[in-house]
Amino acid sequence: MANPAKEAGLAAIRSKGWWRAHQWLFLRRFSQLLVLGLFLSGPWFGLWVIKGNLNSSLLLNTVPMTDPYILLQSLFAAMLPASTAFIGVAIVLGFYLVVGGRVYCSWVCPVNIITDAAAWLRRRFNFKGKNFSINRHVRYWLLGLTLILASLSGSLLWELVNPVSMLHRGLLFGLGLGWYVILAVFLFDWLLSKNGWCGHLCPVGAFYSLATVVARVRVSADKRAQCDDCMDCFAVCPEPQVIKSALKGADQGISPVIYAANCTNCGRCIDVCAKDVFAFQWQKFIK
């Protein structure tokens, strides 16, 4: 029996208790705020742990970290960066290749807090049906477009409007009118399109989804036999299309592991499942 989207997670709270029905969400928020906090402690309290912003940063004045997508844009603009940036990209990309590219989206990106809030409001106020639907492939077109535009213009055009880097940089260095852009993303996700930004449009997420191919950390619907079709996981998942084949593919011999590139490894499905169908799983390198 499918539960209403508004009540997604209630069954899990009843059967597992509040903490176990929120633990991944809690850890995720903790991770997002920790990343932000480590960046903010410098400008706010003079305690410099990490300098810069998500585009490129320096941890403890030694470890460089550079966003591979922004560097790719710069390369498309025909500018060759210094070696620091390449080392930084290797570190960041190496990390996401192991844990899954879109872990960036759900565990690091500050916009996620905003779009999650919008999605929550959507569920609470039962906006089902009032959805401006966008093809989920649009983000890949946007990704290609941003790279082509960088190439044509010789400048990082996308970075003028990219809400992801804009918000993080803005929190650290001043956002100016960028609040309007962030507000627009929030309103768009809340009132117009379900998971519209992160799940359909964002080229940053699209880029990171490409880094999910070999990810070792995956969500697996191991105990899918216990599924009681409550649909709570579909209601809370920002990319519900990734669940179906893993959860319902037993008859076709499809693996219970969610291999889809756009699973963000947010773990919310694990939280809200009253039957403990889902779990994080480490994929061995050699099977």
């Binding site: 410098g42 410099w48 912003n53 550079t66 710069s74 500018m79 213009s153 990082l156 970075e159 260095f173």
Partner: peptide, 14 residues
């Protein structure tokens, strides 16, 4: 060239 090379990280500012 600057607009293509600068990745807007703010490390120079810091």
């Amino acid at each position: 060239d600057f607009l293509g090379a600068c990745i807007r990280c703010g490390l120079c500012v810091r």
